[in-house]
């Protein structure tokens, strides 16, 4: 896992001179990882992806992919191992799915016709392969875009907001697909998203960007640990005020009542049982206990000023 597939050093870029859009970005994507690139809208995710692919000319710094510095000489060799889906997929709407894939395959050369049908099968579009893209839904277009990036069995797949416009079922399918690719072929996958829950469920590594600056970069596991071990609970009961006073007597830490939900912070999972036992002993009915997502708050605290 030590080898870096994507490695940028002091990457800088600006669309115009007055503003710095990407500032000293150090992106480190280990081989075989699923790297989540997280940030609010307009934070520079797409710009970074375009810099990685050489679509934008960096102001300074280096981009190293597969251990080779990206420049005019290495461009073709590097891009040959990359499949990318950048924002809205580039599709010819007056053509059908097979023609669109044929075009991508022709450009890449040495891609067989059977591979076109294989990738259609992978993204479950075989039934619509002869339909014009005009008639496709946004989710279908997104999947076809993904199929295009899979054509050459690349070592690195870059996906820019791949779940945009997908329905919940589509999102789950995309997630499974990404994990499958990673596990079966060892493909390194770089996903950008503004949805933390997406990244949390799929990725092994995470980088959080704000205003063009990397503010956090590590494994998802250590991100969870870094937040500390306290668990926040939301509890719904029939007698919230009584429950509040009962819990305050426990002296466990912060207890509050918000929108008829009790909020309490406990140190370990065992404490959850303790809280429930105390409430039940006071004849208070419990309707639900939920553990609040720590990462969501962390993400907000990191990305908000």
């Amino acid at each position: 896992m030590n080898q870096l597939i994507v490695n940028t050093n002091n990457l800088n870029f600006s669309y115009n001179k007055s503003e710095q859009d990407i500032e000293n970005l150090e992106l480190k994507v280990p081989k075989g990882s699923i790297y989540g690139f997280l940030g609010p809208n307009g934070s520079g995710k797409s710009t970074t992806i375009r810099l990685l692919l050489g679509l934008l000319k960096k102001t300074s710094g280096t981009v190293v992919l597969f251990g080779e510095t990206f420049n005019n000489k290495t461009r073709l060799k590097i891009l040959d191992q990359v499949g990318a889906l950048i924002e809205n997929p580039s599709l010819y709407e007056h053509l059908d799915a097979v023609d669109n894939l044929r075009i991508a395959a022709n450009y890449r050369q040495n891609i067989s016709f059977t591979r076109i049908h294989e990738v259609l099968e992978i993204v479950k579009l075989t039934h619509a392969k002869n339909k014009k893209i005009k008639e496709y839904s946004l989710g279908m277009k997104q999947r076809l875009g993904l199929a295009m990036s899979l054509l050459s069995n690349p070592e690195l797949i870059i996906l820019d907001e791949p779940t945009n416009g997908l329905d919940p079922k589509g999102i789950i399918e995309m997630r499974t697909l990404i994990k499958d690719l990673n596990e079966t072929y060892g493909t390194t996958i770089f996903i950008s998203s503004h949805l933390l829950s997406e990244i949390e469920r799929t990725c092994t590594h995470v980088g959080i960007i704000r205003n063009g600056k990397m503010i956090y970069q590590d494994t998802v596991a250590s991100l969870k640990v870094s937040k500390g071990s306290n668990i926040k609970l939301d509890i719904e009961v029939d007698l919230p005020n009584e429950a509040l006073s009962v819990l305050k007597d426990l002296n466990m830490g912060n207890v509050a009542l918000l929108d008829d939900f009790l909020q309490i912070e406990v140190c370990s999972k065992e404490d959850i049982t303790k809280v429930i036992d105390v409430l039940r002993a006071s004849k208070i009915n419990i309707y639900q206990v939920t553990i609040k997502n720590n990462l969501e708050e962390l993400f907000l605290s990191l990305t908000e000023n």
Partner: peptide, 12 residues
């Protein structure tokens, strides 16, 4: 078709 960004990111 927003094709240029796709074409210029291909090994071509």
């Amino acid at each position: 078709s927003l094709g240029l960004k796709h074409l210029f990111a291909l090994p071509v």
